[in-house]
Design a protein around this nucleic acid. Sequence first.
DNA 1: GTCTATATGTAGATAGAC
DNA 2: GTCTATCTACATATAGAC
Lengths: 213, 213
Amino acid sequence: MNKVQATEKPRQRAPSKRALATRARVFDAAEKVFADRGFDGATIRMIATEAGEPVGTIHHHGGGKDVLFQQTVARRAATLSQARLEALARLEAPATMAAVLEAFIRPFFDLALQDPRWRNYARLVAFVSVDGRWRDLSAECFDPTAEVFLAEIKRLAPHATPQQTAEGFVFTVAAMLALLTSQGRISDLAGSSQAQAAQIDHLVAFCAAGFVA
Amino acid sequence: MNKVQATEKPRQRAPSKRALATRARVFDAAEKVFADRGFDGATIRMIATEAGEPVGTIHHHGGGKDVLFQQTVARRAATLSQARLEALARLEAPATMAAVLEAFIRPFFDLALQDPRWRNYARLVAFVSVDGRWRDLSAECFDPTAEVFLAEIKRLAPHATPQQTAEGFVFTVAAMLALLTSQGRISDLAGSSQAQAAQIDHLVAFCAAGFVA
DNA sequence: GTCTATATGTAGATAGAC
DNA sequence: GTCTATCTACATATAGAC
């Protein structure tokens, strides 16, 4: 058993499993701390503590605080986009407005329901959406997919002006993020709790009705 | 013996006009900087520069960074609540869902359209709504009025469950803040600009239709 | 790749002159 | 009430040992 890679030094060595696991822990920790406290409220030290790694390791994998932040946001964006576009492609030919909106909304909830890291990611995205300094980042990560859905929505509501469809889409995204990040706020207001499954249906119905109007 | 009473503030003297103006400049500046950068991203020095005041003055009027932040959020909340409740009271007897939602939504836009400081305030509120650390502050400032409107909405949609009305209200608030803080984001997506007046009508219609569904 | 120690900057806060 | 000067603490980042 010769260890080939031990002596070879190509342009970039494949990272070891150990290194990849560390890297994932660093980004998961960054995701959680950034989601809790925002970019400026988070510190490299908090992230290091959360990850169970020394401070230097965060810089090594993250490459500075704002690169770390941007990569943390970008990391899951491709997965999310793909899930959304696949859901859209799965719709049979005469799609309804509700079905298109659900193809956009549900994948995020499915991921969030089964993985708490995706819930952290949702809160992180909410922070990004509110802070004007990350507009370019947000556009890079999410606009391409948004354009695809926007085109589909326009096709289903040809009578609406471009402004109206754009507005409706912004309202839909805002409502989706609010529900994703509410974490019981709605139950507080309502006085009791209910399965999230129904809430997603309500969100889709709410937005679909809004678009029709 | 009389030492304690002597050193205690007898009662607060009425502040001079000059002092009140300075105080207002401090809070306006804090509002803008907090709206731009969030709580942690803002610094006392940025606020001082924005206000054209020395650093010590910010502490004097604000009393520490987080007290300053909370007072900045609370400062306009009463005005907003009052405007909303008055708009609600002005509705004639058989109110529609759209009219009730408009009574909630339009006052904020009216203030924001005529005063850029209210636009800053809207962005500040968006930051607060996304950061879990300010949940108590947010509840204190906005929940009482929200309860009034929620009761009215329930009256107009007796068939809906408490969960559904609470959800719809959260969606409405999220969409409202998104539109208030969009600052041309919607025009970007739509490819052209349009008067905000129509956008508010669209928002009301969107949400009213959602509630009916 | 991983971890420690440290350099450098700037934050929030305050004491005291005016 | 207003402003200056300064204290203390902790941030990011990096150099270099392992």
